[in-house]
């Protein structure tokens, strides 16, 4: 990586933030005016949502399993193994479900978007699209943005559900807890604020995954090597952003709901 002066470096970073902000703004507002590419939105929903279901189910389920297993050890010291259901439900719904789903979908789809759009960029397909009178942001970015936000919301619900189910499996089969007691504790542990918190996060994560993936795709330069670099950057940046925004949203929600 070549060294540049601090001034040039700062200008590059500010320009990148500006470009990202412009892309986000256009991606959002394009849905409010025609032409709208509904077929592309549904195609992306299928690719991002349905296509990510297996990894989200597996991740959520085994996270719930391991959470129950690990927490039981600590809870046993206080004689509170029966509270495993509370812990798994709260952890999955408030934190692990949204974050892990975001990270898994980021790994699968932010990279996919960056590489697909990046390949189109380096082979002049984006320019060809513009030359044919089509706005690439409207055709490529907006459908991915709305499809990701919409589908990540439901993927998170699935992850939460299978996580709690995974915790139940371990609690019942390995820890000897009563199924009814586990589910009753899980249900009682959750309040309205927890569910709102858990379902607000995927909206932000979806936005981050789509915009970061598309931004790095659109900024790709330098052939196949550039596509690889964009793909890596998209996954790294979107994953870090998801975790940072998770913290900010958590703090805001705790401020609003008091827990």
């Amino acid at each position: 990586m070549p060294f540049v002066s601090p001034e040039v470096f700062a200008k590059q970073k500010i320009a990148a933030v500006q470009d990202y902000a412009v892309l986000c703004w256009h991606a959002i507002v394009n849905i409010f005016s025609g032409p709208r590419y509904w077929a592309d939105i549904f195609t992306q929903m299928d690719s991002i949502g349905v296509g990510s279901t297996p990894i989200v189910v597996l991740t959520g389920f085994f996270t719930g399993c391991v959470l129950a297993l690990q927490s039981a050890t600590s809870l046993q010291e206080f004689g509170s193994v029966s509270l495993t259901g509370n812990l798994v439900a709260l952890s999955m719904v408030k934190e692990l479900g949204p974050v892990l789903t975001g990270l898994m979908v980021s790994g699968r789809n932010a990279s996919g978007m960056a590489s697909e759009i990046g390949s189109m960029k380096v082979t002049e397909q984006i320019d060809a699209m513009r030359a044919l009178g089509t706005d690439p942001l409207r055709k490529l970015v907006t459908p991915r943005l709305y499809a990701t936000i919409f589908m990540l919301f439901f993927l998170t619900i699935i992850a939460d559900a299978v996580g709690i189910a995974g915790g139940a499996l371990v609690s019942i089969s390995l820890l000897g807890l009563n199924a009814s007691s586990y589910f009753n504790n899980s249900y009682r542990a959750l309040v309205y604020g927890d569910v709102v918190q858990g379902l607000t996060k995927p909206l932000f994560s979806g936005f981050i995954i789509a915009t970061v993936g598309c931004y790095f795709g659109m900024k790709t330069k330098g052939g196949t090597q550039g596509v690889g670099k964009s793909t890596t950057q998209a996954v790294v940046v979107s994953s870090v952003f998801i975790i940072i925004v998770d913290f900010i949203v958590s703090r805001a929600m705790i401020g609003i709901f008091g827990r």
Binding site: E124, Q125, D127, A128, A131
Partner: peptide, 18 residues
Amino acid sequence: FKLRGRIGMVFQESALFD
């Protein structure tokens, strides 16, 4: 975009949508 409706362009490497 409207003006480009009157212009056809053939790209160096074809730039077909693969």
